[in-house]
Simulated scan of single mutants.
Amino acid sequence: MKPVVYIDGKEGTTGLQIFERLGSRDDIDLILIDEDKRKDTAERKKFINAADIVFLCLPDAAAREAVALCENDKTRFIDASTAHRTDPAWDYGFAELSEAHRAAIMQSKRVANPGCHASGFISSVYPLVKLGIVPADYPLTCSSLTGYSGGGKKLIAEYEDPNRDPRHDSHRIYGTTLKHKHLPEMVHVCGLQEKPVFVPILGDYYKGMASTIMLHNSRLPGQPTAQDIHAALTKYYEGQKLVRTAPFGGEEPVIYSSGMAGHDSLQLIVCGHEEQTIVTALFDNLGKGASGAAVQNMNLMLGFEETTGLTI
């Protein structure tokens, strides 16, 4: 029998993108709730308990409530909300971080899908900390430029309104309290002792993300060069299908934040010299930053080839 899959919250941006990746697949049985019953708790409960895999594309509180509706040991969850990303009872859904992460996802009943900004930050910081190149107490700084699709339907409508606020023509810095909701996830997953200074920036384009960390090489153990850091990251992700490093310095002397839009993979671009390094994670905020990552996790949990249904 084919695995039964249900998307709780299919009408949101992340849910729609997951549906787009799954809708034409013949290796799963994707069950769809009636539109007029999508907020009916009893009906949702029935679908949740009928499924082998449930994607939760809901606000945090609603995601927790949905898990509580499960009354069996069969149903496995992939939560796209922030609710469970630092919960030790849930496995973190970034398989490329280590063989232990991949093995845990494959066997897991509860997978927390990573946040978009967090994915960019963690993809570079986790291996650098694990390898001892960046100390856990290093004062990290990260800026992350994203398209407006990550803000959901309301923000998309706001940006695509022909009578929109003219200030939307320029980028806007937000999260200026420096307490962005992805920070706990970044610190927890990477094992950091200091919270990074993290600045998200919203651009006037639909999708694509560029998350950049900045390093003073003289403050790092052994004072590695930018090329040393590039070599370490290249070796760390060697053989991975959905995370890879670009040639040192990138393929041109500029980085466009929409460069990986439409793909479900992530590219790390390392630039700099002997004294300073930047590492930019370039990816689609709706791809490896959300829905693409969720489908990859589903593939691993069900024993499918991990790139099935994805665009590399």
Rank of each mutant, 00 (worst) to 15 (best):
G12I: 03
Y126W: 11
L310S: 04
R167L: 08
N72S: 06
T86D: 02
A104Q: 07
D8S: 15
F198T: 00
V5N: 04
R44L: 06
A293D: 06
I201D: 03
N299D: 09
H273F: 13
K207Q: 15
D79N: 05
D165R: 09
L220Y: 06
T13A: 03
G23A: 15
Q240I: 09
F283M: 06
Q267W: 04
A80M: 04
I33F: 02
D34K: 14
G12N: 05
R25F: 02
R85Y: 08
L128H: 01
H117Q: 14
R110S: 07
E96A: 13
T245Y: 03
K45L: 06
E306Q: 07
E11P: 01
T280S: 03
L16H: 15
G239H: 12
H84F: 14
I312G: 09
I201Q: 04
K235L: 13
Y237I: 07
N285W: 02
K109N: 09
H182M: 13
I255Q: 00
G292N: 05
Q17R: 11
G12D: 05
I269Y: 01
H230K: 06
K10L: 14
G208P: 00
S149Q: 13
Q107T: 13
G15T: 03
D87L: 02
T307I: 10
S24M: 10
Q296I: 08
D264I: 01
D137K: 13
A104I: 04
L69T: 08
